[in-house]
Amino acid sequence: MSRKISYREAMRAAMHEALTNDPRVFLMGEDVGRYGGTYAFSKGFLDEFGPERIRDTPLSELGFVGAGIGAALGGLRPIVEVMTVNFSLLALDQIVNSAALYRHMSGGQFSVPLVIRMATGAGRQLAAQHSHSLEGWYAHIPGIKVLAPATIEDARGMLAPALADPDPVVIFEHAGLFNMEGELPDDWTVGIASAKVRRAGKDVAIITYGGSLPKTLAAAEILAADGVEAEVIDLRVLRPLDTATIAAAVAKCHRVVVVDEGWRSGSLAAEVMARIFENAFWELDAPVVRVCSEEVPIPYAKHLEDAALPQPEKIVAAVKGLFA
């Protein structure tokens, strides 16, 4: 048995459950209350849980993310919603200089059990300042965990273990996924420790995460029609990376494409490739290639935006190049 729900409904259900189960949990962010959440993730929460626990904030990303850290230090389990990754740059100091460091810098005295959620990604013609994919930046920082739920199940299930984690967890939700619908089985288990094989194959491993997962799965179907069976790996957990699952896919398929909506230089894709070279070099039959965003501010015009981002056709072309 299963039932069909959207990514949005799954995330909303996860937050509802957390707020219901643990009085220490509260939600704080811009327009999470009266507006119902920028993406309607928290619609109706204000009436149900009240303004103390569904806390609308002013446009003060640095201030309210820092306040979330303080509240976590003070014994609560805040879910801080930053409207988008683009605005999270205003809060970067608190995330990097406080949340990520406090446990180690205090000699293990203070943990920061904080969850920060933010929308990420391009593809909706929102132009350069609303289209960043900076997951790779966050995945660079020791002391935080970085998650990228890209399926209905992960949208439903990643929040609970993130809240149970004693350290800061940053969750990236790709805005292109919010209306995606899918089956949620009655019985599901979601952890935050490993990558997952989303499609089994043997000819090529395509490693991706977040908003690029549906594009990669679409590419895999096109390739299947041409007789190439792609194994699709969803990283899910961007820090710490699950090197073992990556290496196993390389050992199985011997050819690899990495798909990442981040810009190519210094990208998470680059880190994945480095891990492959460190851990599975002798399994490779061809150089690892990647499909990333073009190194340009993401343009508004649809044809240009499409051209700037990873697309199924680009992924297909990259795979075919490995067999040329």
């Binding site: 189960n21 943990s111 059990p113 990643m158 935050i192």
Partner: peptide
């Protein structure tokens, strides 16, 4: 590890121990 941060006061005794590291839930209304 029991973190240095004190537990929340248990208003109406509702606090429970933290959720497990993986969630396992039914899809029925929770």
């Amino acid at each position: 590890t029991v973190t240095a941060a004190p537990q929340a006061s248990t208003k109406a005794g509702r606090a429970k121990s933290p959720a497990p590291r993986s969630g396992r839930r039914s899809s029925k209304p929770t």
